[in-house]
Design a protein around this nucleic acid. Structure first.
Length: 261
DNA sequence: CGTGTTGTTCAGTT
DNA sequence: TAACTGAACAACAC
């Protein structure tokens, strides 16, 4: 699930803990703690006060001075606030017990996890090489960063080192709204399609960030993706499914023409 | 028991 | 070299 919008939702969950003090950390799965052992992690954050949560691409950063806790949610991770009544769930991996409630990193598949960094340099090191957040890129930056890709426009959109935050569903959604077929080479896009791509990107990402997840309503391709009839919400044509950039990909054969005329 | 999966990394190939 | 592809990771649903 976690793409930019989902992580933005998790950021809002975390922001409710701004100012809370971490009293204890329950590490239920040491493997979800990346590159740090439970003792070291616990010592680093216990007694610390939680600062304002921020998001960069698909990363969530939680300052606990003097360190920063980083979360990456892989495909199945989430961040949940638990009230005093609620019991832990089986897939809760790391639980922060604070004076303002409990915050749990939940992740059935354990593909990513929780990291800790000391200082900005280490934060950047943990996140690796990633491009600017997708919600911050101008039309010009978008074009400059994606156009060198020689495979497909979809591959360029989900490449985190070009721009950060777009995932598989988001890329399909953006390309569908821009009427661009995912297989098309960036080099073949005319000016007006780059403009349309940027508009669609803003539309999709701002809506997903506002919602805190990728909507699956009647006007969303992501909705149609899971609907029984599998039809385009714009033109009602039967959608097509295939593999692009090694990911499962859905597009409309009518709304997203295979060539630019 | 296969097949598929919203993310990333790495080994291997072009 | 750089770009690209596909398997692997872990766990679960179907």
């Amino acid at each position: 699930m976690p793409e930019l919008g989902d992580v933005e939702g998790f950021r809002r969950v975390a922001s409710r803990f701004h100012g809370a003090v971490i009293e204890r950390v329950d590490v239920l799965d040491a493997g979800s703690l990346r590159d740090v052992d439970p003792q070291h992690f616990t010592e680093a954050v216990c007694g610390g006060r939680i600062g304002p949560a921020t998001r960069v691409g698909k990363w969530l950063l939680l300052p606990v001075a003097p360190v920063t806790v980083l979360f990456h949610f892989g495909m199945t991770g989430s961040l949940v606030a638990l009230n005093d009544m609620e019991r832990l769930e089986f897939h809760d991996r790391v639980v922060f017990v604070t004076d303002g409630g409990r915050l749990a990193f939940r992740d059935p598949r354990k593909l990513r996890g929780v990291y800790v960094a000391d200082g900005d340099a280490q934060v950047r090191e943990v996140m690796g090489v990633i491009g600017p957040d997708a919600l911050d890129v101008s039309p010009q930056v978008l074009r400059d960063r994606l156009s060198p890709v020689r495979s497909s426009i979809k591959a360029s959109l989900i490449d985190q080192k070009r721009i950060a935050g777009i995932g598989n569903f988001g890329a399909d959604e953006i390309l569908w709204r821009a009427h661009i077929r995912p297989h098309i080479a960036p080099s073949s896009l005319p000016d007006r399609q780059w403009q349309q791509l940027h508009r669609s990107l803003r539309e999709v990402l701002s809506a997903t960030a506002r919602a805190g997840h990728t909507p699956r309503g009647p006007r969303w391709l992501t909705g149609a993706r899971f609907r029984e009839d599998f039809r385009c919400p714009i033109c009602d044509a039967s959608l097509e499914r295939g593999t692009v950039a090694a990911r499962s990909t859905v597009w409309c054969p009518i709304c997203q023409p295979s060539a630019n005329l």
